[in-house]
Design a binder for these strands. Structure first.
Lengths: 227, 227
DNA sequence: CGGCACGTTGAAGGATCTCAAGCTGAGTGG
DNA sequence: CCACTCAGCTTGAGATCCTTCAACGTGCCG
């Protein structure tokens, strides 16, 4: 079992990690805590009381739910800038697992109301980030409702490219084929098959595992449009 | 073509529709507008500038996206109390269509920052509602990732029962079989087949179309757990 | 009565899942 | 340096479930 190794320290004089240059505080109270976790660590567990929520600074995270039949489902991948663990419920509906080493800013959920009331800038940003999360959740539903495995994977790659690709068009998938399968609602064998199909068709190149470039992004988008 | 027939009037002296008994206002400005739409009307259109967002008071709404291949997808059903049209983007990603006659409270998006800053109670409630939307979006993903049509529909019915059933266990589905199919990523024929399967198995009864009672909700939940 | 929208049912075909086996690369220990 | 192991990835073959196409039923409304 991977043991969670969370190192936390209060942010006293760090450079701008949130919107402001100064750590969020009020009347001497510190509301932000910087947290570091290693790859594979569990940040919070499904079913546990939702004491904290986080903003991801570096690294990547998967939101996992284990279904009663033992299947694993991934509901979201979080990248830097995303809000993590801000669900409605008192308990977490999902586990959050670090795919890579991560740095996060941690907030106490019960401070939310205080923070919103004392800091309108925080309130606005929190609102914007939550709405962004909702918007990306809807985008994922659109992917999931596409019948064909090819469509789902192609659209997933396009969105990952949008989120993470560098100027030369290359990007790195932090997650495994299994993670992708559990995210797209496919068997991992199917994901693998579609990957080779995409490579054979010259749609993508992948010289080493998970290092990817879309050969003709526009053509791929058009193809998905037309289909 | 169904024409949108939106009747709007400023809320001057209505009973409590939002959290407070008084319409939201600040320095003499009115921020809330009550809006009435008839069944089938489009409240806002995919691609249009997102000038307003809404809180649904009565009625039901579907969030629709037309895919490039002509397929229609429904990303969400909204019931009273839900926030509608609060996406991140400047333009709406989806159309919102009234399934039943609806009453909504309308807000101007560009007033959001002002409202958050001037009214902490509003800010907190907005935040809570958005998080609730995110949470229900994740719940829907879990449904969508279930392979079998039976599972998807059964879980959908359970969630609709949770949201809308009265004390005696009966509830009314406001949407058509086609709507459900487009929501669950299934063919409408498949939805129809599973409905008859559920009825023959004695899991549900449906004396008139869309008026439903779950015979043994716990047993159904257990069955889905076990599967 | 006819038209229409919606729902149901049947049959055939196809896409994905499951099970099973082989492959690759990294890490380990002799 | 090589053999071994293990996890993750790839590939193959058959079975299953859903989709598609098509026909029919039902209720509503002019």
């Amino acid at each position: 079992m991977l043991q969670t190794a969370i190192q936390a320290r209060h942010v006293q004089a760090t450079p701008a990690l949130w919107s402001a240059g100064q750590p969020r505080s009020s009347r001497g109270r510190i509301f932000e805590t910087k947290v570091t976790v290693e790859a594979g660590a569990t940040i919070f567990e499904e079913g546990a009381p939702a004491e904290y929520f986080y903003k991801l600074v570096t690294g990547s995270i998967r939101l996992v739910k284990i279904l009663s039949d033992g299947h694993r489902q991934i509901c979201d991948f979080h990248l830097p800038g995303d809000l993590v663990g801000f669900a409605n419920a008192d308990d977490h509906d999902f586990s959050a697992e670090a795919i890579q080493p991560c740095v996060l800013i941690r907030y106490r959920r019960k401070d939310v109301d205080t923070l919103i009331k004392s800091d309108a800038g925080f309130a606005c940003e929190l609102q914007t980030l939550t709405a962004k999360g909702l918007s990306s959740a809807y985008a994922h539903m659109v992917r999931l409702c596409h019948r064909s495995a090819y469509d789902r994977l192609a659209r997933f790659l396009l969105s990952m490219a949008d989120r993470t690709q560098s100027a030369d068009g290359w990007f790195e998938l932090p997650m495994s084929r299994c993670d992708i399968a559990d995210y797209l609602g496919l068997a991992h064998e199917t994901v693998s098959r579609v990957f080779t199909q995409l490579k054979k068709a010259g749609v993508i190149i992948e010289p080493t595992l998970n290092r990817i470039k879309l050969i003709d992004q526009d053509a791929l988008e058009d193809q998905l449009e037309a289909a």
